[in-house]
C-alpha cells in the first residue's frame, strides 16, 4: 500500500518531471483494475463455496442427530430383549448399535472438517474484501491524480492561448479588494443619499421645528420634577 503513496510522491515531486507530463502510468491503472476484478471473482466464488459447505455441515449435523435418536431407540430395544431373556435378539441389536456408532463417528469427522472449511473460507473472504478495499482506494488516488492532471492541462491550454490569462495572486487580490471596496463605497453612498433625501432628513427637519417626536431637554425634566414635589 505504502508503495503507491511513495511512487506518487516521487512522480509528483517538483522538477522530477516535465510540467504537464502524465504522472500516472495507465498500464498500472489497468493492472489495478484487473486485480480488483480478480479479487471480486474470488470473493464471489468463496461466497458460493461457503454456502455449499455450510449446507453440508448442517446436513452432517442432522445426520448425527438422526443416528443419536436411532441409537437411543435400539439401546432401549436391547435392554427390553435382555429383560425378556432374549439374549440372541439383544446380540443382533448390539451389532446394529455398533454399526450406528461407527457411522456417527464418520459423520462427526465430516462435520469437523466442514466446520474448518467454513472458517477457512470466511478468512479468505475477509482478506479478499480487505484487498479490494485497499486496491479501490489506491485506484481512487491514481484516478484523481489523472483527472487533476487532465483538468490542469485543459485549463492551462485555455488560459495560455486566450486573452484571459490568469493573473498573479497579488494583482488578483488587489482587484478583488478594490471591487469589494467599490461595493461598500456604493453602499455608503446609497446610505448617505438615503439620509439626505429620505425619511431621515424629514424627521430631522420636523424635530428641529418642534413637531412630532421632540425630545425634552434636561431643563424641562427638572422643571417637571420640581412641579411634582411642589416647588414649581
Amino acid at each position: 500500500m505504502a508503495g503507491l503513496f511513495k511512487k506518487l510522491i516521487t512522480a509528483m515531486r517538483g522538477g522530477a518531471r516535465e510540467v504537464g507530463e502524465a504522472v500516472v502510468d495507465m498500464n498500472a491503472v489497468r493492472i489495478y483494475e484487473q486485480e480488483i476484478e480478480d479479487a471480486r471473482n474470488n470473493l464471489a466464488r468463496a461466497k458460493q463455496d461457503l454456502t455449499g459447505v455450510i449446507a453440508k455441515e448442517m446436513q452432517a449435523e442432522r445426520e448425527i442427530k438422526r443416528i443419536n435418536d436411532e441409537l437411543g431407540r435400539y439401546e432401549q430395544h436391547a435392554l427390553d430383549a435382555l429383560n425378556k431373556g432374549r439374549e440372541d435378539l439383544a446380540e443382533e441389536v448390539a451389532v446394529k448399535i455398533a454399526e450406528l456408532e461407527t457411522e456417527r463417528g464418520s459423520q462427526e469427522a465430516a462435520k469437523t472438517q466442514f466446520h474448518a472449511h467454513v472458517e477457512r473460507l470466511k478468512g479468505i473472504m475477509k482478506q479478499t474484501e480487505g484487498t479490494i478495499r485497499q486496491h479501490e482506494r489506491e485506484l481512487a488516488m491514481v484516478r484523481t491524480t489523472e483527472s487533476v492532471q487532465k483538468a490542469t492541462r485543459s485549463i492551462t491550454d485555455n488560459y495560455g492561448a486566450g486573452a484571459t490569462r490568469l493573473l498573479d495572486a497579488k494583482s488578483s487580490l488587489e482587484r478583488i479588494k478594490k471591487r469589494q471596496q467599490d461595493f461598500s463605497d456604493r453602499m455608503s453612498a446609497a446610505d448617505a443619499l438615503e439620509q439626505e433625501s429620505g425619511s431621515g432628513s424629514l424627521d430631522d427637519k420636523l424635530k428641529s421645528a418642534g413637531i412630532g417626536d421632540t425630545s425634552s431637554g434636561s431643563s424641562e425634566v427638572l422643571a417637571r420634577l420640581k412641579k411634582r414635589v411642589g416647588q414649581g
Binding site: A140, R143, T144, E146, S147, V148, K150, A151, I155, T164, L166, L167, S171, S172, L173, R175, I176, R179
Partner: peptide, 20 residues
C-alpha cells in the same frame, strides 16, 4: 470574480473544486 475562478471536475470517486 473572474480573478479567482474555481474549476470543478469529477472522477469516479469524487468531485474536486480547485482554485489556483
Amino acid at each position: 470574480q473572474e480573478e479567482l475562478p474555481i474549476f470543478v471536475t469529477a472522477s469516479d470517486d469524487q468531485i474536486l473544486c480547485i482554485c489556483y
